[in-house]
Write a protein that binds this DNA or RNA. Structure first.
Length: 819
RNA sequence: GCCCGGGUGGCGGAAUUGGUAGACGCAAGGGACUUAAAAUCCCUCGGGCGCUUUGCCCGUGCCGGUUCGAGUCCGGCCCCGGGCACCA
């Protein structure tokens, strides 16, 4: 008996695939294609089980289509800019570039050892200058087309670290690294106007992605974009208030989704950062106490106000209700956001929970204008449901859903307001005060202002001789890098020292893979390649990217389309979100000490075992609980598969079977084999339920081991090796090469005859309870089945009246009796 | 608070979409082989009753409903996981 030595087998095949360039996409674009993409990794140093899972799923799908003769693009790259490289530089003094590219070299070997069928020619790292070059061109084109702008906005600033912090990096008002209190600073930064595409991003969720992406992800994106429609109108200041404000303002606009409650307005509220508040502070229009309270609320970050109790202060000014002409007091409120809508709201405490809470706290009047169709108003809380308008002038008695439209119409007719749509989606701030990123290709000229770098001068590359200390942007402090000449007027100018958010790189990498870019260095990707390969047919990755990456990549695709680079509206036709890999119920992490190292598993059992286990243990979308003994089980199965191959004979074509000579067990084994084959198509193309496909293959092998028929056994192997090759490519290649010269790889037709049963087992129920089981000929008539069934359950139906007889062909018999 | 998922043996998970609940694997127990162990192979494996077989009762988070028949559909509730969270 020969021994299963996965290390020898696997390394031999990996070498062979490498030499044969077995996984390169073909240039014949008349072939049907599949573009299979797993999210590319960040080169952190070593692969983890999440990677193994991600790439095992993608590889199985890619190998399946390749085996069936399709032209398959299955690339890998490296998302290689980012903070960890700089942190490593600070901690260990190693240059980010060296650290990054050494990690890539190591991880490339790890992935290769898993037998993943990635194209070699398409591999790149996003930190490669050739990649940056094109990204900078896109960014310049976006700038020229109004999709990118530099503007000054309030940001979180840490003085000791000399950098802007993301909201996520501010912990209780302090810097996450040095613990110093952060400041709010107005800083210039670069913003991509993703909001211009809000409507299309939303629309294509329903029109292009529904049914192909998980509903969960689509819902999350919808909520994130957050479309709402309502009425925008202007509150005019009262005469006294306008005077008080020195005629600098005559009013301000508000947005509401509830115009139907307009008669219930009892006050209005401004965001703490509202221009009117700014003006009043600057012109000292508050009394001392009010000013103090205003300043106090303004000193708290908007993000942190959300966790606080509602707070506000009357500003001493009033506006006029647009319909009733009543005087409405204007408050400052800490729950009003400056960057949504107009930064000011009308407040209807009777029908809005926040307004109600605020009104109760400050004893503001509450006016009920909608009553439920059935039942009475409960005055202890806001009523936010539908109902009939009361106290609403000419609209009284109307259903509120209709009143919404009618009131908007009235505002539009009088020219005092109009219907408006608002989105929660914000523009995408891509500036990072970091070294290890793609430089923003702009020059600040004292004469010309912002000037894009000339296209022929791209890429703007990073200087290698930098000192990374963790405080401040090394590009800013570099002695020479930022000093340059203005591309327009030639005078002394400075480069932009901000680099781009790494999400910019991962937003268009799927396009770059479509071209053999070593061959075609003059384009980011060739149009004919992009047309043929895009969109990605199947994208696979973690749900944690449901919003950020997947939304940015969708946006980028649309932007590149409109800039003339791309031909598709959506980058990823189908999306599979894989679940996390857990150990002892929680995510594997160094701090918990529950990490299982893929290298160790591969060293002990081989790549096929790792792949088999990870695809067998749970369906791909679900979380996967790591189990050492489960891995052993997978390894045992592969051993059996390998040993039992000796029960087959060598042949270069599938054995012909004389079905008439087979016994029951042999037919049963053939049926299970072909059931597995039949199931495999659905699994690889639609459901990705690899766990049940593997279970089915195990059942088939178990059934084969019960028979003693070399033809059937060999046929079984011929089919099973074909079905399992995408999952466990090494062992199946080895066996198939030895027995079948690998002629079994490719399309095998399902033998429908083999799937048929001679006899069918029917459970027989009496009044819905199973009482017996019968076996009848597959072609038995309904009456024959019933007759046999009644005989089997005679003791339950004797002397009773039969009310109903149900025979579901191929399924079940149920006899309903009375008495 | 709102919006999605999900609750099935000791465990991971199946169940052809309303038709034999627990496939497949793991763990556990028993047996064979062996001087012994490992490996391998065979048997048992939801709970209870009867236990020699046939068999009977209960069982898919809880309560109710629809149906000849419900893990699956409907109504109400209880847990668990995730996302969003003052968006006017």
């Amino acid at each position: 008996m020969r021994e299963y030595k996965p290390q020898e087998i696997e390394i031999r095949w990996q070498k062979k695939w490498d030499e044969e360039n077995a996984f390169e996409p073909k240039e014949d674009y008349t072939l049907p294609k599949k573009y299979i993409l797993s999210m590319f990794p960040y080169p952190s140093g070593r692969i983890h089980m999440g990677h193994v899972r991600n790439y095992s799923i993608g590889d199985a799908i890619a190998r399946y289509y390749r085996q069936k003769g399709l032209n398959v693009l299955h690339p890998i790259g490296w998302d290689s800019f980012g903070m960890p490289a700089e942190n490593a530089a600070i901690k260990h003094g190693v240059h980010p570039k060296k650290w990054t590219y050494e990690n890539i070299d190591y991880m490339r070997k790890e992935l290769k050892r898993l037998g993943l069928s990635f194209s070699k020619t398409r591999e790149f790292a996003t930190s490669d200058p050739e990649y940056t070059r094109w990204e900078q061109e896109f960014i310049i084109k976006m700038y020229e087309n109004g999709l990118l702008e530099r503007r000054t906005q309030k940001v979180n600033w840490c003085e000791t670290c000399h950098t802007v912090l993301a909201n996520e990096q501010v912990i209780e008002g302090c810097c996450w690294r040095c613990d110093n209190p952060i400041e709010i600073k107005e800083l210039p930064g670069w913003y991509i106007k993703i909001t211009k595409y809000a409507e299309e991003l939303l629309r294509d969720i329903d029109e292009k992605l529904k049914g192909n992406w998980p509903d969960k992800v689509l819902t999350m994106q919808k909520n994130w974009i957050g479309k709402s429609s309502g009425l925008k109108f202007k509150f005019n200041l009262s005469d006294e208030s306008r005077e008080k404000l020195k005629n600098a303002f005559d009013g301000y606009e508000v947005f509401t989704t509830r115009p139907d409650t307009i008669y219930g307005v009892t006050y209005s509220a401004l965001a703490p950062e509202h221009p009117i508040v700014d003006f009043m502070l600057e012109n000292k229009l508050f009394d001392k106490e009010t000013e103090e309270r205003v300043r106090k609320i303004r000193s708290i970050l908007p993000k942190e106000r959300q966790a606080m109790e509602k707070e506000g202060v009357y500003l001493g000014i009033d506006v006029v209700h647009p319909l009733t002409k009543e005087k409405i007091p204007v408050w400052l409120a800490n729950f009003v956001l400056m960057d949504y809508g107009t930064g000011a709201v009308m407040a209807v405490p009777a029908h809005d929970e926040r307004d109600f809470e605020f009104a109760k706290k400050y004893n503001l009047p509450i006016k009920w204008v909608i009553k439920p169709e059935n039942g009475e108003i409960d005055e202890t809380k806001a009523y936010t449901g539908d109902g009939i308008l009361i106290n609403s002038g000419e609209f009284t008695g109307m259903k509120n859903t209709e009143a919404k439209k009618a009131i908007i119409k009235k505002f539009e007719e009088q020219g005092i307001g109009k219907e408006e749509i608002n989105y929660r989606l914000r523009d995408w701030g891509i500036s990072r005060q970091r070294y290890w990123g793609a430089p923003l290709p702009f020059i600040k000229c004292p004469k010309c202002g912002i000037v894009p770098e000339k296209i022929e001068n791209l890429p703007v590359t990073l200087p290698d001789d930098v000192e990374i200390t963790g405080s401040g942007n090394p590009l800013e402090s570099h002695p020479t890098w930022k000093h340059t000449k203005c591309p327009k007027c030639g005078s002394d100018a400075e480069r932009e020292t901000d680099t781009m958010d790494t999400f910019v790189q991962s937003s268009w990498y799927q396009f770059r893979f479509t071209t053999d870019f070593h061959k075609y260095p003059d384009v980011p990707f060739r149009k004919e390649d992009e047309k043929y390969w895009m969109p990605v047919d199947q994208y696979i990755g973690g749900i944690e990217h449901a919003i950020l990456h997947l939304l940015y990549a969708r946006f980028f695709t649309k932007a590149l389309r409109d800039l003339g680079y791309a031909s598709v509206d959506e980058p990823f036709k189908k999306l599979l979100t894989q679940g996390m890999v857990l150990k002892d119920g929680s995510k594997m992490s160094k701090s918990k000490g529950n990490v299982v190292d893929p290298d160790e598993i591969v060293a002990k059992y081989g790549a096929d075992t790792a792949r088999l286990f990870i695809l067998f243990a749970a369906p791909p979308e679900q979380e996967l609980e790591w189990s050492d003994s489960g891995v052993e089980g997978a390894y045992r199965f592969l051993n059996r598969l390998y040993q039992n191959a000796s029960k087959c004979y060598k042949t270069d074509k599938k054995p012909e079977i004389d079905v008439s000579k087979l016994n029951k067990a042999e037919k049963e084994a053939r049926r299970k084999v072909y059931e597995t084959l039949k199931r495999s198509k659905d699994t690889y193309e639609k459901t990705f339920a690899f766990n049940t496909l593997i279970a089915s293959a195990m059942e088939a092998l178990n059934a084969l081991n019960k028979i003693d028929n070399k033809d059937v056994y060999t046929e079984g192997y011929w089919v099973l090796m074909n079905v399992l090759e995408p999952i466990i490519p090494h062992i199946t290649s080895e066996i198939s090469e030895e027995l079948f010269e690998r002629n079994n790889f490719g399309e095998i037709e399902v033998d429908e005859e083999a799937l048929k049963k001679d006899e069918i087992n029917y459970p027989v129920q009496v009044n819905g309870k199973k009482r017996a089981e019968i076996s009848v000929a597959a072609d038995a008539s309904k009456d024959e089945i019933l007759e046999s069934a009644k005989r089997a359950v005679s003791k339950y139906i004797e002397g009773k009246e039969i009310v109903k007889e149900i025979v579901v062909p191929g399924r079940i018999v149920n006899i309903v009796v009375k008495g």
